[in-house]
Design a protein around this nucleic acid. Structure first.
Lengths: 211, 211, 211, 211
DNA sequence: AATGAATGAGCGTTCATTCAT
DNA sequence: AATGAATGAACGCTCATTCAT
């Protein structure tokens, strides 16, 4: 948690620092992030960073929390009542997409902090996320099973894992697609995205085997 | 690529070093692996490590390459001709399982090197893997589509991503299951594993939606 | 020497600062005393401390001087005319004791500043004390020698050193005694103190050798 | 405890480092001793210091231990059997003197490490010394009381404190004497030293009061 | 006068890599 | 070829002091 000093500086500077922290922790592994570099990019003295934050860990968690807040902002407008799992997946895909396009660094940071990163806090963060995210999907699957939208002969945790894994892999497709074209993800043609998304939902609905 | 000196030392020592490198790079993030620790465990002088390898990166890539070789060894005995994708998935699951049980460090290393690790070479490694592994599955999917085993209204790369992602998530279940029981993955009861595996294949075959 | 601003603030605040300075410099080694901590405890801005004092050294010397003043206050009531050295020692012991009980931080500060502390000014302070205190005792010894109270075949400076050193060691006994009982010095039983004091005077009077 | 590396470098360098460590820790308070300065004076890289020692504390304790060893060397030739306390004091005075003259930095270090210094280990060191030194004198006093050399109506710990304190003050005299003459302690005229010493013993023997 | 944010020199420690033997 | 000592850049963090408001 940042020190109170941080909240008493100008908002402009505070946002500059927030943005820079997210960018650096998103781009580099924790252990390679140099506070001095960040300070320099913020046009702030190294010591000042320590006026605002307890230590490096504090900066890191603050960056993650800030990025998380941005996600939750987007989530606020989503209605999860009375929709099927497939609608949910579609919506959350849309959501993810928006997030990735609008907040690329935030997206990268959240992606990596719990899985890819080498910070000594990975486990801590992973658990934090799981508490927030997994439960939502889990509850949702159970509700859908009860409502008869989806099969109930398979334990919900398996279904959750299935959805999570496949949607993760799905996102990878976009990223590698974009990379192969040498463009940013957000510059992919919309119809291509829609097409892939439709396919994904189809698989989810019917399964990949021919009937 | 190790220097030629590495291949002129006793095989016993070479294997000792190989094993230790894999273990260390599997257990710790790249930036936390200390060459001196490795040298010590190998009962070899730190300087010697630099007689055998160009630098740390060289050691890392050698470790990964060695672990990869072990996978391919197992793969050699698998017959991919004339089997359906579902049999393939079942077999590769079996394969993975065997690998994880017999070569835990190699498994961990391959798991993490391309995704979780903080080395500056992650991207490089990811591409290397993709070239090796994805293609196999990719070819396979196409063959299966042609043979009429699986639907062909969905592009093969989507199907590949789907399988990869979901099988990855599937493995996570085992790991978290084992962790919650406080045992190693290989000590999970066999029937539980079989049950989960069956569920997974079922989803793959029929999809998660009720018909 | 504090700046004149220090003397234009409310007496209440000035005393609060004085007290806190003494406490901190008494408890921690000079280099570990953090101005910010002091400012916080004084409920004063860090910057204000620099409005009142030139720098850290200035605060330190001011603290010492204040503590010294308190000692001299006590001394004022003591009559040194026409008493023997032994009475003097007894009285100054009493004095010290009162001081230690009533002004523990001041006592600690004076104790440590000239001997134990790591400030770059130790020598300077030691000389300052010597000028103040040694002379009093020194004059006194000479007077006593002339008056025939104590032997005059030994140079007065030796006798002074003897008294100072042994009384210092004597105080140590109390401190370690208190520590071993886990209580504060001022909570030691009075009769025990009296007994020790009597022994001390006895030694001083007769010497430790059997006659 | 130094790492084994330290014992595998040339003796010449090892001694250079030992000497420099003692000198620096003797002259400056712990917190002001800069490893880089030491390294520079040793003509050794800063990193090398950390090849030899675990950390700063390790260096400090090694310096103290080395200095202690030197004292014990001198002590080896002293016979404590069947001598009176006064002979003992005389001898230990001689001893101290030799030590101070021959090993001034070692002397200063031992003097300060347990009392004056600001290291976080002062207490630890003090206890270590007390175990070594105080007991010797304590046992000695008791033996002397039993043998009838010294009075036994005063508890031995008081007598010990008395001797320690006064001998400490006595040494101070020399130091301030030397300083006032602008010379080193070891350059004080021998007869003056002898004279002071004789006086000190006299006081110890007969006490300072006229009979 | 009061505030508290800003600064930056300073220090302990790590570790990949080089080098002398 | 083998050794392990030597190196020094790098980095997290502290804190006295200054400065703008």
């Amino acid at each position: 948690m940042p020190k109170k000093t941080f909240y008493s500086i100008s908002e402009e500077k505070r946002e500059r620092i927030t943005k820079t922290l997210i960018k650096y922790f998103a781009e580099k592994p924790y252990s390679k992030v140099d506070i001095e570099d960040i300070a320099k990019e913020c046009k702030v003295a190294k010591g000042s960073m320590y006026q605002y934050f307890e230590n490096k860990k504090d900066m890191y968690f603050y960056a993650i929390e800030s990025a998380t807040k941005k996600t939750l902002e987007l989530l606020r407008d989503v209605n999860l009542e009375n929709i099927s799992l497939f609608d949910y997946v579609e919506q959350s895909f849309e959501l993810n997409w928006n997030f990735l396009v609008r907040y690329p660094y935030e997206y990268m940071l959240l992606e990596k902090s719990a899985f890819y990163d080498d910070s000594p806090y990975r486990e801590e963060i992973r658990e934090y996320y799981e508490r927030i995210t997994k439960n939502i999907l889990y509850e949702f699957v159970i509700k859908n099973q009860k409502a008869g939208f989806i099969r109930d002969d398979i334990p919900p945790e398996i279904i959750v894992a299935f959805i999570e894994g496949s949607s993760w892999a799905f996102k990878k497709i976009f990223i590698s697609l974009a990379k192969s074209k040498g463009i940013g993800v957000k510059d992919l043609p919309v119809d291509q995205i829609k097409k892939l998304q439709k396919d994904y939902i189809t698989i989810l609905k019917e399964g990949i085997g021919k009937k």
